[in-house]
Design a protein around this nucleic acid. Sequence first.
DNA 1: CGCAACATGTAAGCGGTTACATGATTAC
DNA 2: GTAATCATGTAACCGCTTACATGTTGCG
Lengths: 185, 185
Amino acid sequence: MDVKTVCLGMLSSGPASGYDLKKQFESSFGHFFAAGYGSIYPALSGLAEQGYVTCMCIPQDGRPDRKVYEITDDGMSFLCNALENPTPCHKIRSEFLATLCFAHLMANAQIEAVLSHRLEEVDESLRMIDDLESKCGETWSPAMTFVAGFGKAMLTTSKDYIIENRHLLTKAATATSAIGLRAHK
Amino acid sequence: MDVKTVCLGMLSSGPASGYDLKKQFESSFGHFFAAGYGSIYPALSGLAEQGYVTCMCIPQDGRPDRKVYEITDDGMSFLCNALENPTPCHKIRSEFLATLCFAHLMANAQIEAVLSHRLEEVDESLRMIDDLESKCGETWSPAMTFVAGFGKAMLTTSKDYIIENRHLLTKAATATSAIGLRAHK
DNA sequence: CGCAACATGTAAGCGGTTACATGATTAC
DNA sequence: GTAATCATGTAACCGCTTACATGTTGCG
């Protein structure tokens, strides 16, 4: 499932412009499926060309025409078809974890920096989801509640794990523990 | 951090061939940083060209020469430099969650299929990590223990969340609950 | 006065995936 | 005998990211 299909999916719940979709990617989809203008605009053009959406140009003064896209019947059946894949993937590409695999080559301060930066990011995502929930939670479909809850569960676990286990990454290098270990032998 | 740098990192704990690295990607790194031969072999050639690794060709009969790569001092300092980035990213691209956002367009059986397939994948990853831990756990650096533990925590949470909340995605479509809701009004 | 938001797009480039090409050895 | 393992590579392709290009309105 590519950006195109996700855009089509978003349009299945109502007409929107590329600009609108970008905001939706940032708010609700951001933490598990990112997309920028460079993907969204070409995706919408493609969908229009294939007849899966129609485009209404709304002239505005001082701004480019607002282009509002609406899903067609063809688009709906294409979408439903795409959703039939029983094995959608869930990919993680974590430079964060890859970096930490080599923590033994890093200074303690560097490791701490990486961890606290990650904790900040996690907190920000968590805040984002909470905000969104308090704003739109009541209008959400059960599916959206499920997905948001999934995100929260992952982020919370991630946060707790880092806090509880960060000592594993740094203590080995402290003078005290090194001495302690030697003395123990 | 790209595949090249991760390969270099793996080589920092001892010489290996492209084939060896692939196995390591599959076993220990697989669940958070995937790479295939099509990325690994060119990466190693590139690293050799840049002087970050040296290559020893070991002739074999009936097989292509085994090419064992070893990190150089230049390679080590390049690696340490690369590890200094305090903001390594952690990206998720989940067709799984994207699909479920549109669960209202799917048949219950389809939703179930997606969920149980995901649960199988999670179990497999979990098994993989456990196997790896029982095999190499004692030789692992604390960092590896941390990373493996992180993976286990994520996967376990993911599994539990799906099991506990799958009803959110399907019950709305059952005849009973639909009737129940109508009757309620 | 400056920045954020509104609004759309193009084009180059990069990095990774997939498919192809080859072929002997070993274990079941 | 047949499947998995060992072992290396190339090349086309695909999709996404980044940078560029443009310009107004409204808020603090």
